[in-house]
Amino acid sequence: MAVVRELHEIAEFERVYALFEDIWHFGPGDPPITMEMMVALAHAGGYVAGAFEGDRLVGGSVGFLAAGGALHSHVTGTAAGRGIGLELKLHQRRWALERELGRITWTYDPLVRRNAHFNLAKLGARPQEYLPCFYGVMGDAINQGDESDRLLAVWSLTAPHVAALARREPVAAQVPPDAVIALADEGGRPAPGSPDADTVLVAVPEDIEGLRGSDPGTAKAWRHAVRDVLGGLMAEGRRVTGFSGKSFYVVEKV
Results as ranks from 00 to 15, higher is better:
99 R>D: 07
110 P>D: 02
184 A>E: 15
88 L>D: 06
137 V>F: 01
172 A>N: 04
168 R>H: 12
199 T>P: 02
244 S>W: 06
240 V>W: 00
170 P>Q: 01
229 V>G: 08
90 L>M: 09
199 T>V: 05
240 V>Q: 02
117 H>D: 13
214 S>Y: 10
97 L>I: 01
250 V>W: 03
133 C>M: 03
125 A>T: 06
129 E>H: 13
48 V>W: 08
43 H>Q: 04
196 D>P: 01
73 S>M: 06
199 T>W: 00
67 A>W: 07
72 H>D: 08
234 M>I: 15
158 T>P: 03
229 V>R: 10
96 A>H: 07
155 W>I: 01
37 M>W: 00
80 A>Q: 10
237 G>V: 14
55 D>W: 11
160 P>L: 00
214 S>N: 13
205 P>D: 07
228 D>W: 12
239 R>N: 12
118 F>T: 15
141 A>I: 09
59 G>Y: 07
66 A>F: 03
7 L>H: 05
33 I>L: 04
101 L>D: 11
180 V>L: 13
105 T>P: 00
188 G>T: 14
228 D>G: 15
69 G>V: 02
254 V>C: 00
181 I>V: 15
22 D>T: 06
173 A>G: 12
141 A>N: 08
247 S>P: 00
133 C>E: 04
221 A>E: 06
98 E>A: 10
136 G>L: 11
153 A>H: 05
155 W>L: 02
10 I>E: 14
196 D>M: 02
35 M>H: 08
113 R>V: 09
220 K>C: 10
59 G>R: 11
25 H>S: 10
45 G>L: 09
91 H>D: 12
87 E>D: 13
212 R>F: 01
80 A>C: 04
200 V>M: 00
59 G>K: 12
191 A>H: 11
30 D>H: 10
80 A>D: 07
1 M>C: 11
70 A>G: 04
97 L>V: 00
101 L>E: 11
50 G>W: 04
83 G>F: 07
94 R>F: 00
57 L>P: 15
67 A>V: 08
234 M>D: 14
161 H>Y: 08
122 K>N: 05
234 M>T: 15
37 M>Q: 03
172 A>R: 09
234 M>S: 14
224 H>V: 05
193 G>S: 12
9 E>K: 07
140 D>R: 05
209 E>G: 03
68 G>W: 00
184 A>I: 12
10 I>V: 12
20 F>E: 10
